[in-house]
Design a protein around this nucleic acid. Sequence first.
DNA 1: GGCGGCTTCTCGCCTGACGAGAAACGGAAA
DNA 2: TTTCCGTTTCTCGTCAGGCGAGAAGCCGCC
Lengths: 256, 256
Amino acid sequence: MSSIAVIQRTFAVLEAVAASGSASAKEVAHRLEIPLPSVYRLLQELVEHGYLVHLKEQRCFELGPKCFDLGLSFRQRLVAPSAIRQATDELHRQVQAASYFAVYRGSDIVLTHLSDCTAHPRLRPLRFGFHEAAHATAFGKILLAGMPAEQRDSYLAARGMPVLTPHTMTNRHQLDAQLHAVAVRGVAWEHEEFLPQKTCAAVPVRNGSGIQVGAMAVSMPSQEAAGREREIEAVLREYAGRCSRYLRSGHPVTAA
Amino acid sequence: MSSIAVIQRTFAVLEAVAASGSASAKEVAHRLEIPLPSVYRLLQELVEHGYLVHLKEQRCFELGPKCFDLGLSFRQRLVAPSAIRQATDELHRQVQAASYFAVYRGSDIVLTHLSDCTAHPRLRPLRFGFHEAAHATAFGKILLAGMPAEQRDSYLAARGMPVLTPHTMTNRHQLDAQLHAVAVRGVAWEHEEFLPQKTCAAVPVRNGSGIQVGAMAVSMPSQEAAGREREIEAVLREYAGRCSRYLRSGHPVTAA
DNA sequence: GGCGGCTTCTCGCCTGACGAGAAACGGAAA
DNA sequence: TTTCCGTTTCTCGTCAGGCGAGAAGCCGCC
């Protein structure tokens, strides 16, 4: 693990401030065990570049505008293209359930759009950004199933399979078997494995080369899902198909 | 302007990637005129710390998870406390207009909560985060009026007074006169100075020591505002008063 | 298999970051 | 006002460690 010391320290300081929300130079120096003058140098540097601000009244440092800008750039880069957001929104309206779109990013899984409303709220822990509980969500399973075996191994090894509900799958062999079935059927269901009383379904989205690049999903209270499985799968496939066709052609697809 | 060279370069690289959305090492090296091996060192460093990711398939670098985390930390730190968000939401419902809450942050102005809906949408350019057009918005005027004179000078000097509509105030003396009136009356109006056809109003919010710390505002189509000025000012004052009382006592205030 | 690009590694030089210490600053209390 | 205390900035000699030219390694592509 190489590391240019200054950079190492600079980010350590930045992250220390981010973690505290607000920290004085002394606190940072103490927490990181870096001599005070060095901490001041680095803090000043970070302030100069706009990553921190120095609130003199309160004698403390906090995150600066550049941090927000980075977050925005990140979001703008990753957010699903508008044709796909639109498809997700329509799926939401048609199924009357919160809808999601997620993709691969390097070796991560990122939720790049979600559509919900007060009547059909999203599953609270799910939000735009990185998704860490792939073993327990429908779109996570779809995307895990689409990974090369070794990437899946390292993905799960890095994150483990935390228990989220009594139904969460925690046995790797059992998960592998289900992922195989998911890959064959082209649809993943998840019943109360992520949140109690909630059910999710997901299907793959492919790019122009037929490579699986993402997943479309819906979530709803389990009782609302009962008996609607065939209908939900059909609608999911319809909208995922629109997304795949969009990715192939570059033009929004409005109807079947 | 001091500057530790490595840090300077590291952030230059990070920002170059952020600006491009996606960039190869060579592109960065060329754009920043830094020798290629150094760029690789810095990129690798940024990848190691999670600020960038290396997408090998596409032979390029993009922003990494830490950027998103920083954005989230920033947001969580700045977002208005829930009592104030709630007051803003109620204001929105009662006035039937998009509502805003903004505060000082060091020498900046930050919009820390907004409440809107499809029937009463926010003014599109306004979103959570830093606000740059204080001379042209109602809450901007309230907050400018509450600044010490020299801070206001440097604020306006740094940002200028861009023309946004035919009604935008561009004369500094005229603005100062209006800010004086705003400070005396304790309310600011803005008629089509920020966006055509839109009108905004704002009033100050004070902390326990009586210091002005923020502003509450509403925006609406100009025709809807006509004739409702007194009502709007009264309701704004009511909710801003709740916020001020909350800041004084630390307890949410539900009724007058 | 060979080519052409991106990416990583090697190595000696010398810059420029480091940290102890002390001084300057500024707010709070008396 | 003066005093005091904690925070912040500055100074300076030392030497770690970052620098960049160059070359080698790696991969995908033709």
